[in-house]
Design a protein around this nucleic acid. Structure first.
Lengths: 118, 118
DNA sequence: ACAACTCTAACAGGCTTGTGTCAGGGCCGC
DNA sequence: GCGGCCCTGACACAAGCCTGTTAGAGTTGT
């Protein structure tokens, strides 16, 4: 009813090593027997197969999927990213500031930021 | 009204090299002068500063943000990922299939998949 | 009870990322 | 027109990722 790691490996085309790695990335986490053996059920096998398909068809890496997982878990992170992407791409140009002053302003801002960061 | 790359670098704390790299990742793309010089306006400077903050506060890498960008652009990819994550986590256990047969089935499926992949 | 499997932990090689630096050639401001 | 910018492209090197492999100890099925 559940396959051990080597069986799951030959059944899905992953290597046993990679199955452990995939688990460590939090992507497919099999059940464990009393003694700690990994037990892959049909759901996990399906997941492993479709994961493989996902990577191949979209040219994506395991780490990327891991990051996507992180995005769904930490939604503070997700909204921070959303916020950044949606940041006004064309800044409200300060209308009447002379060029030289603007440079100076940027420089000052940076100086202050550095002070804060240190 | 717009800073050159070295000015933008000192204004944001990135190195000039990294500004080019960030641009190559598609994250902050400055305008170009007629001769091809990068021109960073206030919007880009702001974006660079907040990007830096984003990386630091959330322990994220540039490549991760690049991948997030890819997610917003290729929404086929995004929905594929969503689909994978939402795949039934507890498979509908085929009710009356003997265990041995199930293993054999998985093996056969794999064999066919390999045939297709080669 | 013995062979064949599993576990974790670790090291190792190849590939990718992040970052600096340099070279050769063009542009800018004084 | 000259010193100091900027461009692209390339090499270099540390750090990290991916993957295989090995070692030592425990488990399982016949």
């Amino acid at each position: 009813m559940a396959l051990t790691i080597n069986e799951a490996a030959t059944a899905t085309g992953w290597s046993p090593r990679m199955l452990r790695y995939v688990e460590q990335q939090g992507l497919v986490e099999p059940a464990r027997s009393a003694a700690g053996y990994r037990l892959y059920g049909p759901a996990q096998l399906q997941r492993l197969r479709s994961l493989r398909a996902l990577l191949e068809t979209h040219g994506v890496e395991l780490g990327d999927v891991g990051f996507a997982l992180r995005l769904r878990r930490e939604n503070e992170l997700a909204s921070a990213l959303d916020g950044w992407f949606d940041e006004i791409p064309t800044a409200p140009e300060p209308p009447d500031l002379p060029a030289a002053d603007e440079r100076w302003l940027a420089f000052e801002q940076d100086k202050h930021q550095h002070l804060l960061n240190l």
